[in-house]
Simulated assay, not measured.
Amino acid sequence: MEIEISAEAKDKALNRRVAVTVVILSVFMGLCGIKDGNIVQAMQQAQSASVDGWNEYQATRLKQHLAENSRAQIAVLAPDDVRSAPVLAQLDREIAKYRIEAPRLATEAKRRAAQYDAFNVHDDQFDASDAAISTAISIAAVSALAETAWLLGAAWAFGAFGLFLGACGFLGWGFHPQLLSGLLG
């Protein structure tokens, strides 16, 4: 008693739709991956610049504090006003410079941190797009194996959501998959 199992699909139209779906989603996912990689690099640069900016701000504030303390000590302890006057004048110039420089450095560091946050929204969009499209491709594969059209419809729903999120990332739209990011983040 031999049982012959046919490897041919009964519904070739379904398989063609699955194949087209997988190709479209795979190509779009590849393009999103390239863009997401570039965004991640920009995020790293923005974060590095922000950290450097805050370090420079802290160093400037520390130098200001040291100059102010030095000035106060010299003013109190110097036995000769004539000899201490040039030193005090130099410290006054440094203190004035640090008072101007510190707020500028803080503003720049905050700008870089905000830039990082803006990039992060788009990174999350591409990550969620990748997850949705991967799920769509997996469901499409199962729909071909099970020869079930409704599963292909579910794959298209996930794929459409993934395409939407990827488009948001490419076009700079502010939509953020907050719930998905919260669950996966």
Rank of each mutant, 00 (worst) to 15 (best):
Y116R: 06
D81G: 15
R104G: 13
Q90P: 06
G53K: 00
G33I: 02
L163R: 10
F158I: 06
N38A: 06
W173Y: 07
K12I: 11
A85Q: 02
W54Y: 10
E68R: 03
G30N: 07
A19K: 10
S6I: 11
W150Y: 09
S84R: 04
G172R: 00
A154N: 09
H65K: 14
C168I: 03
A102M: 05
A72N: 07
D124W: 06
L105V: 01
A42T: 09
G182H: 06
S70Q: 11
V20L: 13
I139T: 01
W150H: 11
I39F: 15
L145W: 03
L179G: 15
N55E: 07
L66W: 12
R99S: 09
W156Y: 06
N120W: 09
A149S: 11
G166S: 01
A89S: 05
L66F: 12
S50W: 01
F161G: 14
S181M: 13
Q58G: 05
H176K: 06
V23H: 06
L77G: 04
M1W: 09
N15D: 08
V27Q: 13
A140W: 02
L152P: 00
L184Y: 15
L88M: 07
Y116N: 08
G30Q: 04
Q64V: 04
D11P: 11
V22S: 14
P177L: 01
F119A: 00
W173K: 08
L165K: 01
Q115W: 11
I3P: 05
A7E: 15
L25W: 10
D81F: 04
H122Y: 04
D117G: 02
T135E: 13
Y116C: 05
I95E: 00
A96P: 07
I24F: 10
A19Q: 07
D36L: 12
K35L: 10
Q125W: 03
V40I: 12
D117R: 10
K63P: 10
S48T: 10
C168D: 08
A131G: 08
R16N: 14
D127W: 03
M1D: 07
W156D: 12
V18W: 10
G30D: 07
Q47T: 13
L88E: 01
V23P: 06
K35W: 13
A146F: 11
G182Y: 05
G166N: 02
N38L: 11
A89R: 02
F158L: 06
A75S: 13
L163G: 12
G182M: 04
G174L: 11
Q125C: 03
T107F: 12
A144Q: 03
A149M: 07
V121M: 03
D117W: 07
L171H: 09
E68K: 03
A96C: 04
N55V: 03
R17Y: 09
R16T: 11
A132Q: 09
K35S: 12
H65T: 14
I100K: 15
S134W: 02
T107L: 13
